[in-house]
Design a protein around this nucleic acid. Structure first.
Lengths: 151, 151
DNA sequence: TTAAACTGATACTATATTGATATCAATTAA
DNA sequence: TTAATTGATATCAATATAGTATCAGTTTAA
């Protein structure tokens, strides 16, 4: 069970870069290079974020992307929603032949409760919060020396 | 973002039936019919649960499946793990070029915390708990009258 | 003793989702 | 004018999910 897909993951990390370099335009190329993401794929992710008003872009030489919204107003929950759709425990719960009467469906009840808990947790993890933790603890992703394993 | 796949969903509902009819063998056919699940697909799910020691089976006429473990010892978290793999927020977090030093990766830290919260929530939803709620509130899935919409 | 109702096992297909690549037009700065 | 960029879109590959089909073996009961 994978909670974050690549798109969401790349989006978060791209936003962390944009948040760190606020005020200047950062190119997709440089983000892709620094964070080791596939260039064209990342571009699609960035476009999607533009459409949702999280970032803006500038075309041409010296162009790139810049964070638009306040970093504290961008939560991981929103990013999940954009790239993976709304958190839903089980779609089939809503099909009438399976759960005819929602109010009586105990499974659905439990599941909705958890949905809420999960959603709230992700809501509270904002790009701003992550950025502050970053500043406090150093780099997000320090380079690995050759052959070194993640600790 | 879908939290429960069909397999997990069918597994939960099959277990609720087996839990309700404890002591006698219930055939895959009757479960499939009553819960409107694809027969062969359900059989695969049941086999998987046998392999994990949750249920047992008896072959031949009058055969079927019976719950083996205590219903309170079967949590939704375990079922998710069986059918969807361990809850992991983002696999890529573990690839060294992305998160070289786990202890410094703030994203990973946040994400692990949420992973724990989610896992605990699902752990606490057991088949036994659901069965008791069922008994208290009536049928899990009452039949729908023709044309009636889920409420 | 045989037929029917079952499970065990496994192979296969279809569809959807995810991840990634490629291409070309338009824009901008130097 | 050219190189570095984004906008837009089409395509593809890999993987996961959902579902189907088949046949052998087991058990009960007529």
């Amino acid at each position: 069970m994978k909670v974050l897909t690549k798109k969401t993951d790349y989006a978060i990390r791209a936003l962390l870069m944009l948040g760190a370099k606020r005020g200047s335009y950062v190119s997709a190329k440089s983000i892709a290079a620094e964070q080791d993401m596939p260039y064209q794929f990342l571009r699609g992710v960035l476009q999607e974020m533009i459409r949702h008003g999280l970032i803006v872009s500038k075309e041409g030489v010296q162009g790139g992307f810049m964070m638009e919204k306040d970093a504290d107003d961008i939560g991981v929950r929103q990013l999940i929603e954009i790239f993976q759709g709304r958190v839903q425990v089980s779609e089939c719960m809503f099909r009438k032949q399976i759960c005819a009467n929602r109010s009586r469906c105990v499974l659905r009840h439990e599941i909705m409760r958890i949905e809420q808990v999960v959603s709230n947790e992700f809501e509270q993890v904002t790009i701003g919060k992550l950025l502050r933790k970053l500043n406090a603890t150093g780099n997000l992703m320090p380079a690995l020396k050759d052959g070194e394993e993640p600790s």
